[in-house]
């Protein structure tokens, strides 16, 4: 009896979480997968159409344009976030003045919702009501069309996305840095290694597990970025900041084509899955840095 209880207890402990996870994640995901093979406008019953939505997706020039825009956005946001958060972590891990204050300042945006961040940046960058253009005007400079020019709008969206999350990853890197034994640096200094050599041969390799988590999480976050862009540019000007998740929302709730939107979601899932596998493979190739 006791042995049986001991066996069943862990499962009972995870059961509540499993139920919630199944209701809100697993079942909707499976249902979404099923819907991707149907034509469904929500109001009537789904009609099975096989691979129809996927064929339409691959034949759509719009989908490929949106996908390439999304990849540009993701492959801009992820390296910048990664590099910047690592640099900030290294600086703020040293014994500098007001270290706690700066850590708090950089971490602060991560406590705000993406909607609040989007609204704030919209008010800063707006053409006519924006604070930045007001300041430029006071300085006697011409206003800049921050959000009404495709190029500047894309840059600003990337900038705001990085700003929103760099503090979060900075904290992860700081934790990683604090886990590196100081004796490695002492030994390196005795051997005459420069600061750059110490970073290259000690810090960077030993941060590999943290780096992998940062890259995977920031990639997933970038692909899924919705609220910030929705309120900051509403995907514009035109569709220049419309990425995959914005288009999924558009197709599902504006056009009412749930099947097509679900097919796009499945594609997004496959892309994310593939990238994550690649990231793990690449990361494992070098072996464990401590070995």
């Amino acid at each position: 009896m006791y042995r049986w209880k001991k066996k069943i207890a862990p499962y009972l402990f995870v059961l509540p979480n499993l139920i919630i996870f199944s209701i809100f994640i697993v079942f909707p995901a499976l249902f979404g997968f099923y819907v991707s093979f149907t034509e469904w406008d929500v109001l009537t019953s789904p009609e099975f159409i096989g691979l129809g939505n996927f064929i339409k997706l691959f034949q759509s020039a719009d989908f490929w344009a949106i996908l390439s825009r999304t990849l540009i956005y993701v492959f801009s946001v992820v390296p910048i976030t990664f590099g910047l958060s690592m640099v900030l972590a290294i600086i703020l891990d040293r014994n500098i003045k007001a270290k706690g204050f700066f850590r708090a300042i950089f971490y602060l945006p991560t406590m705000l919702s993406f909607i609040v961040i989007g609204v704030s940046w919209r008010w800063i960058l707006g053409n006519n009501f924006g604070i930045l253009n007001y300041l430029l005007d006071l300085a006697g400079m011409a206003p800049v069309n921050w959000l009404t020019n495709s190029t500047t709008a894309t840059i600003m969206v990337i900038f705001a996305s990085v700003w929103a999350r760099v503090g979060y990853f900075m904290v992860m890197f700081i934790a990683g840095l604090q886990g590196i034994p100081g004796v490695y640096y002492e030994a390196a200094e005795i051997d005459g290694a420069s600061k750059w050599q110490q970073f290259r041969h000690i810090t960077f390799p030993l941060l590999k597990p943290t780096s992998l988590v940062v890259v995977v999480l920031s990639t997933i976050q970038a692909f899924k970025m919705f609220g910030l862009i929705k309120v900051m540019t509403t995907g514009g000007p035109g569709d220049s900041t419309t990425y995959l998740v914005q288009e999924i929302y558009q197709q599902a709730f504006q056009v009412g084509d749930m099947g097509y939107a679900s097919a796009m979601s499945v594609m997004l899932f496959l892309i994310l899955g593939l990238l994550t596998i690649v990231q793990f493979k690449v990361s494992n190739r070098g072996g464990n840095a401590y070995e």
Partner: peptide
């Protein structure tokens, strides 16, 4: 017409109400 409405999503009601 300011391009901020059709290209930047600025609210036309606010533009008119504020006298711009």
């Amino acid at each position: 017409i300011p391009e901020s409405i059709w290209l930047g999503g600025e609210n036309p009601n606010t533009l008119f109400r504020s006298g711009l």
